[in-house]
């Protein structure tokens, strides 16, 4: 009895959490006539895929998703590169000021985007990086490095010190120890940090909005959020585009939830 109640509760939770996206998915399969009818139907009466065709042919959604992928790949790569080196340095080499760096990174990760956005905009305009992917990639690299350093330094601490010491006895140089022994051991942590950074890139809004303001350069989140403002842009297309932009995240989450949770708890809770 208690068990049944418990499972019912879990099912109720799942419905509450997944329902909004299921609803936009169902909407995306409806015909225009069915969408603008009252009361709304649950299951589409004549499911159609026209909305998917239209959203790719008549809006820039394909471009937006491509733009986001390019920016996510490059900025995630740069962040993980910088943060692995820094995380290793902070966690395993007891140099003076290591903990000050860690506090610096923590403090920077709390900065409200609004306080950096205007200056960044003016400076990027001066060096002609507004409406350039490179501009946003560099900004994201700085923006998300702090949280990645935090996650990775926690991860590096969990690798036993003996590994490194025995390598040292064998006469390996510091750089070789880092790249040949520690980085391979830290790969799961790096993957978790990379996933989290990529999700953050997919999420980020304000800086993307101001740095890539040209329509064809927009990222998916910004581009779709601006659809309802464009004249008479219909809801069947907005819901379709939103569903398509959310889909990759569902896959990432489904396959990697364990890594993501591990990384998150390392970054946010443990210290």
């Amino acid at each position: 009895m208690k068990k049944t109640l418990y499972y019912l509760m879990i099912i109720a939770l799942m419905i509450i959490f997944f329902f909004p996206v299921v609803w936009i998915f169902l909407t995306s399969l409806k015909t225009t006539g069915e969408i603008y009818a009252w009361p709304p139907t649950f299951i589409p009466e004549n499911p159609v895929i026209d909305n998917y065709r239209t959203v790719f042919l008549e809006s820039n959604l394909g471009l937006y998703i491509g733009n986001t992928l390019i920016i996510a790949v490059f900025s995630t790569f740069l962040v993980i590169l910088l943060a692995s080196l820094a995380g290793y340095g902070i966690a395993r080499i007891q140099f003076k000021g290591a903990s000050i760096f860690l506090v610096f990174f923590l403090a920077m990760s709390m900065f409200p985007q609004l306080s950096v956005a205007p200056s960044l905009f003016l400076w990027l305009r001066q060096i002609k990086l507004i409406n350039k992917f490179l501009g946003l990639i560099l900004v994201y690299t700085g923006l998300f490095t702090p949280i990645a350093v935090w996650i990775l330094s926690t991860y590096f601490k969990t690798i036993p010190m003996d590994v490194e010491e025995s390598a040292k006895i064998d006469g390996c140089s510091s750089l070789r120890i880092l790249f040949q022994i520690l980085i391979p051991l830290a790969l799961p942590g790096m993957a978790a940090a990379a996933l989290i950074v990529a999700i953050f890139v997919w999420n980020e809004f304000l800086l993307s909005l101001i740095i890539l303001s040209k329509d064809t350069l927009r990222t998916a989140t910004v581009g779709i959020a601006l659809y309802p403002g464009e004249y008479a842009f219909p809801w069947e297309l907005i819901t379709t585009a939103t569903f398509l932009a959310v889909l990759p995240l569902v896959f990432v989450l489904f396959f990697f939830q364990k890594n993501i949770i591990g990384g998150l708890t390392a970054g946010a809770v443990k210290s």
Partner: peptide, 10 residues
């Protein structure tokens, strides 16, 4: 993981 802006649109 759902981006805040897309959640708002939904």
């Amino acid at each position: 993981v759902l981006p805040t802006a897309l959640n708002a649109i939904i």
